[in-house]
């Protein structure tokens, strides 16, 4: 099992990967990707620990993860490659013609680790509910994890899913909202305020936990705690507080880095703030 320091080294390398990938592709979404690097690292390397070599579509007898806000693909691809789902050097193909690393995740090109497409927002929570119900029907005790964006909650379908999961006691589901407060057009509170999210989720019948998503130690401890709250009749929701652009000072908390790649100069500046820990691809 990796130590906290080792997990932090992985997420630092993941951040380097993200910067290099979107710079190399000259397009992509660095801001949100940097924000969820710590969470995805802990989830894969410590909480789920999937058998990458044995990847198959059905994913029976293991925990599964679904990324609803597919534009965070750079972070997910990097974590999966670093974990061992596919060769690290493939990260350099992001968004390029013929690559398995599509701009938004897709199972079409059979990239190990991906089970469904995402990108058009608002669908992942429902998909995760379906996968969670399948696990229950199969008598499989493993969990479903899913991540969606805070701005993404403006999509109405999420609220259909939020109503459904508690009503049908989908208690093997852990949903995480990346609450960085930023979306393309500006602060979420200006574009379309979400109001009191905790109160809303609780009113719908979810077990709600807050978490600092950029603190590896806290992510690890909260995810382990939430695990103990599964199987008790309620679905679990984590409001994960993160910083868009976390790890790069000039990107941090700035919504303008949602979907803009750094140019070469900016990338060099960003990389100077992120130590190469595992070796660049």
């Amino acid at each position: 099992m990796p130590t906290i320091e080792e997990l932090q080294q992985i997420s630092t390398q993941v951040r380097r990967d993200i910067i290099r990938m979107v710079n190399g592709a000259a397009s992509g979404h660095p801001g949100g990707s940097l924000g969820v690097a710590d969470f995805l690292t802990v989830l894969y390397f410590e909480i789920m620990r999937p058998d990458a070599a044995a990847f198959d579509m059905d994913g029976k007898q293991e925990d599964l993860f679904f990324l609803s806000n597919g534009h965070l693909a750079p972070a997910w691809y990097s974590v999966m490659a670093r974990y061992g789902f596919f060769p690290v050097h493939e990260l350099g193909t992001l968004r390029k013609l013929g690559s398995r690393l599509q701009g938004h995740p897709s199972p079409m090109d059979k990239l190990p680790g991906i089970r469904i497409a995402s990108g058009s927002l608002g669908q992942g929570l429902s998909v995760s509910i379906g996968a969670a119900i399948a696990k229950k029907m199969n008598g499989d005790p493993h969990l479903i994890y899913t991540l969606c964006g805070d701005g993404e909650l403006q999509e109405g379908q999420n609220w259909e899913a939020l109503m459904f999961a508690p009503a049908r006691k989908v208690d093997n589901l852990v949903a995480v909202v990346d609450y960085n407060g930023k979306q393309i057009d500006g602060p979420v509170d200006k574009v379309m305020p979400l109001g009191n999210l905790r109160a809303k989720f609780e009113a719908f019948g979810w077990e709600v936990t807050d978490m600092d998503g950029n603190n590896t130690r806290e992510v690890l401890s909260v995810l382990n705690t939430v695990k103990t709250r599964t199987g008790k009749g309620k679905p679990n929701m984590i409001i994960m507080h993160t910083h868009m652009g976390c790890g790069v000072d000039f990107m941090m908390d700035n919504h303008e880095w949602h979907g803009v790649p750094p140019n070469n100069e900016q990338a060099a500046k960003a990389l100077s703030q992120l130590q190469e820990t595992l070796g660049d691809y």
Binding site: G122, S126, V127, I129, I133, A134, Q157, E160
Partner: peptide
């Protein structure tokens, strides 16, 4: 009844739950 899922009037949720169910080998 154990294989019948009433989703209420929420078709978008229904379609995506169905997609999720296939992951695990169901035929929704």
């Amino acid at each position: 009844p154990e294989r019948f899922i009433q989703t209420g009037i929420a078709e978008a949720n229904m379609i995506c739950i169905a997609a999720g169910l296939t992951i695990g080998g169901k035929i929704p």
